[in-house]
Amino acid sequence: MVTDVWYTVLIGLVALERLAELVVAKRNLAWSLARGGRETGFGHYPFMVVLHTGLLAGCLLEVWLADRPFTAALGWPMLALVVAAQALRWWCIRALGPRWNTRIVVVPGLPLVTGGPYRLVPHPNYVAVVVEGFALPLVHGAWLTAAMFTVVNAGLLTVRIRAENDALRSVHA
Rank of each mutant, 00 (worst) to 15 (best):
G115L: 10
L112M: 13
P108M: 11
A95I: 08
Y126G: 06
G97V: 14
P117V: 03
L112A: 12
R103D: 06
R103I: 10
R99F: 13
Y118M: 10
R103N: 08
R94V: 10
W100D: 00
Y118I: 12
L110H: 07
L88S: 02
L96Y: 04
N101I: 07
Y118D: 03
L88G: 02
L112W: 04
Q86P: 01
W91Y: 05
C92Y: 00
P117R: 04
R119W: 02
G116W: 04
W90T: 03
V107E: 01
T114A: 15
I93A: 11
H123C: 06
L96W: 02
W100K: 06
V121H: 12
V127Y: 00
R99P: 01
W91R: 09
P122Q: 13
G115D: 14
V113I: 15
L110C: 03
N125R: 09
W91T: 13
L96A: 11
G97F: 07
G115W: 07
R119M: 04
P124C: 09
W100T: 05
A128M: 04
P108D: 06
V107T: 15
V105G: 01
G97M: 09
P117T: 08
R103A: 12
R103S: 08
I93E: 02
L110A: 07
H123A: 10
L120P: 00
G115S: 15
V121Q: 03
A95H: 01
V113T: 15
W91C: 03
P124R: 10
Y118N: 07
P117G: 04
A128N: 03
G116Y: 03
H123N: 14
R103G: 01
W91Q: 09
A95T: 13
L110G: 00
P124A: 10
T102V: 14
R103K: 15
N125V: 09
H123E: 09
R119L: 05
W90G: 01
H123Y: 13
P117W: 02
G109C: 12
G97K: 13
P122M: 04
R89W: 01
R119Y: 05
P124I: 11
P108V: 12
V127C: 03
N125E: 04
G116K: 10
N125C: 09
A95V: 05
T114M: 11
L96T: 10
R99I: 08
P98V: 08
A87K: 06
G97A: 08
